[in-house]
Design a protein around this nucleic acid. Structure first.
Lengths: 338, 338
DNA sequence: CCCGTTTCTGCAAACGTGTGCAGCGTGCCT
DNA sequence: AGGCACGCTGCACACGTTTGCAGAAACGGG
């Protein structure tokens, strides 16, 4: 026989399906005689009854699923975040539907549309741009969501992001303490909050530590990728800029720097100190192991999921933003300037 | 107003919901006048109608979702596989529910239980052990599933796996051509098909290439991890084994070898040539860049998804197994023995 | 003793869609 | 012209669950 239905357990327990429903649901259990409730429950798991979430969802307009929107699963930044999300979703009885947008806003629109048609109860979004019309529209339409890692500029929505300013300051301070005075910055795209926040934090840190803030020592990367990072560093060198260290806005950009150094027969940290941001896995196996600002991505995801569940259960609670403190992991890609 | 329902479009088009349903569904569209069908369709997308998969699923007992069971999202092997799966699932109107078992069989049972209660139509399983009672049971119960990357021993179920024998042969041949005669193998766990297949392939390749197959030059790793790989290599060295190259059963195990070499102040490839298996990302950035047998993981996932969809639409088609050919990527971790 | 209240359970109607069956009209064949 | 088949559409019910409402029984207070 197929998986037993609510009706089956009701019949077996000699009660009406409605009563069985109430007995099985902890929230409504109080409405039914403790005796009967006990009996129904017993019959239920003796039959191995599992409520059908589809049917329930149809009635309650709740699906028990949330959508998770990321740019690309292949970027090693995201798996730990996803794990963090799943680890809090699962005990709460929720499942996550993961989609990869490839940074394509049409694709993003389509995918989110499909998530909504699957009746997701909320969204965890990791693709936020500073100016993000789609997210604004969704917000207006009352879609519950929380941003992770990045956030849009003017949107009153919960988010959990790394403390970019603190992280960059740690990186710059480390380099200054090593004796560097001419430090370059390879910024992330200015369309993202992390890109501009880190760029701004870099300028502040440089000034605060007594160096002069030279615009000629900064380049914006077109994307958060190795290729874009390499291109930016090449550009900086071609322009004849003079620097002994570089703060990359994330680890992939730092890896791009490695590529350029290899092309030119140069080596970190002898010819250039490099520091990354994010703390991707396997950074300690690189040549040389990369000094980087790490954040607890697992926690990043976990907090985001918690905020989302909160927004689902208490819809008119105000949005909250949490900043996660980063730490600097010093490895062999940074050293005193020669 | 909420998202429009089938009833809304029926009213707007001046037809009965049943007619609208038939008009919108390509399979039944033939039953309705072409004229009306056209009108209904037009009204439908002018209203922005999206069928509610929940309701449809309730009626058809199809959820449009499949479960994806992997050991750990954080292992870089899996994201490309997942991408491959999603890329064929999505155009087919399916979504994947991803769960991580952490190689815990109780957890696996619970998670699969929860997937089933969510009415998934099939399973893509990447956690297969050679002897896997749970999978056998599911198969008996008629759950549609396909194995990816690994497969159980005696289970008549579709699978798509790398051609382990060919891959290992490529690796061994490469080392032999470099002049190595004493080659060690760090095997994966013998509880997995890939572990034993690669170990067996290693012995065959060694014999076929005219070397002697010495059991003393093989160790089984307790897990597919860096730590287990490091432990196995330490053990091999402690036993006084004499070898100039090692074929690791996967890239993480190879990374474990790097750790041991670093501990001992040794270097690849001067003191030991190392080759990995899988072609994880960022292997080219390591010190030294790792020679490895790569497989197209994206395709691995894609093929698996295709097989699953096939099994769903044509349930009594016999199981098929596809082997994907690997290629050897030679980098700087292998060289002629000194 | 009666009536109001509480406690519990059953009834039935939803939620949005798919589908067997019947009915209707039209056209064609005899 | 009558009958039959066919093409199309509407009706109604089902899928498995939740939930407002009402009714029954038990109970307590005046």
């Amino acid at each position: 026989m197929q998986t037993p239905t609510l009706r089956d357990v009701a019949d077996a327990a000699g009660v009406h399906p409605a009563t069985a429903s109430r007995a099985l649901n902890p929230a409504t259990r109080g409405l039914v005689n403790a005796e009967t409730a006990k009996r129904v429950i017993k019959v239920a798991d003796s039959l191995g009854y599992r409520p059908n979430p589809i049917a329930r969802g149809l009635k309650t307009a709740k699906s028990g699923t949330v959508g998770i929107v990321i740019p690309d699963l292949t970027n090693p930044l995201f798996p730990p975040i996803l794990r963090g999300i799943e680890d809090v979703l699962e005990p709460a009885g929720y499942s996550g539907l993961i989609v990869s947008t490839d940074n394509d806003s049409d694709r993003e629109r389509t995918l989110i549309e499909s998530l909504r048609s699957r009746q997701v109860e909320g969204l965890v979004v990791a693709t936020a741009l500073l100016d993000h019309p789609l997210l604004e529209q969704l917000h207006r339409e009352g879609v519950r969501m929380v941003m992770v890692n990045r956030r849009p500029r003017d949107l009153d929505v919960s988010s959990v992001t790394p403390d970019d300013a603190l992280g960059i300051e740690l990186a710059v301070r480390h380099l200054v303490e090593l004796g560097h005075t001419r430090i370059a910055h390879l910024a992330g795209p200015s369309s993202t909050s992390t890109g501009v926040a880190r760029a701004k934090a870099f300028r502040n840190a440089v000034r605060d530590l007594g160096l002069t803030d030279e615009p000629a020592l900064a380049r914006e990367c077109a994307a958060w990728t190795e290729e874009a990072g390499a291109a930016a560093l090449r550009d900086l060198r071609a322009a004849g800029a003079d620097f002994t260290a570089v703060v990359a806005s994330n680890d992939l950009i730092a890896l791009g720097c490695y590529d350029v150094l290899a092309e030119c027969g140069l080596h970190a940290p002898d010819d250039l100190s490099v520091v990354g941001f994010n703390g991707m896995p396997f950074l300690d196996k690189l040549a040389p192991p990369l000094t980087t600002v790490t954040i607890a991505h697992h926690r990043l995801g976990g907090e985001a999921a918690r905020l989302l569940l909160e927004a689902i259960t208490e819809p008119d609670r105000p949005a909250r933003s949490v900043l996660l403190p980063p730490t600097l992991v010093v490895r062999a890609s940074t050293a005193a300037p020669r």
